[in-house]
């Protein structure tokens, strides 16, 4: 087994850079090397959503802009026939799910190498994202259990509000690998005034 490298390999961590008032109101931490599975299929076809819940323990979210999670995985709605399954552990569900879905027209695709998660938080995270994100991040309209695909700094992203066990209210940004470095640099630049802390990545191999 050879070494894995996250898309943020060029950005050194940890870093603390206080803002104009000496504060750090934004933090960011990569959650690297999760299992990302893209699932496409017809939720109305018999056995489809059952297969997903049997393997993940999560009811397939069929409402737009929603996601559901358990301790080990999350399932986010991406489209009327498309979901993203994120597993924390390396052995997360590709083979068992493929087995169960085999009789159905579907596409289960491993994207683990193709995307990563930037978790952001801190008092001003919404302001930092609002520097280049047209989506309304206000907690009234976008809270836990919601997800949204949108753009930040011309980069397509999937946003999922989460509770970080150590730092509380936070947001997971799922971003394609090739854009991750750009997005991280953008957010650090946008957070310069508020001050930011870049934590060492989770899940380093």
């Amino acid at each position: 087994m050879s070494a894995k490298h996250s898309p943020l390999v060029e950005i050194e961590t940890p870093v603390i850079r206080p803002g104009s008032d000496g504060q750090t109101l934004f933090w960011m931490q990569e959650h690297a090397f999760c299992v990302h599975l893209n699932l496409r299929g017809d939720p109305s076809s018999s056995g489809f959503s059952e297969a997903v819940s049997a393997v993940t323990g999560i009811a397939l979210p069929e409402h737009p802009n929603t996601c559901a999670s358990s301790e080990h995985c999350r399932v986010a709605w991406l489209g009327p026939d498309e979901w993203l399954l994120i597993g924390v552990h390396e052995d997360f569900g590709h083979a068992p799910l493929e087995d169960r879905l085999a009789p159905l027209h579907h596409a289960l695709t491993d994207l683990s190498g193709g995307q990563t998660i930037l978790r952001v938080g801190g008092e001003n995270w919404r302001d930092v994202l609002a520097s280049a994100c047209p989506f309304d991040l206000h907690p009234r309209v976008f809270g836990e259990g919601a997800c949204a695909q949108t753009v930040i700094a011309h980069t397509n992203v999937l946003l999922m509000p989460v509770k970080d066990p150590d730092r509380g209210e936070a947001l997971d940004i799922v971003v394609r690998r090739s854009f991750a470095d750009h997005l991280a640099r953008w957010l650090m630049d946008a957070a310069a005034e508020d001050g930011f802390e870049l934590l060492a990545p989770m899940g380093s191999a």
């Binding site: 737009p64 047209p134 989506f135 695909q149 949108t150 753009v151």
Partner: peptide, 11 residues
């Protein structure tokens, strides 16, 4: 029709 009102930038 699925995701609701969004900015033109997403389209």
């Amino acid at each position: 029709p699925w995701c609701g009102a969004r900015d033109q930038e997403e389209f």
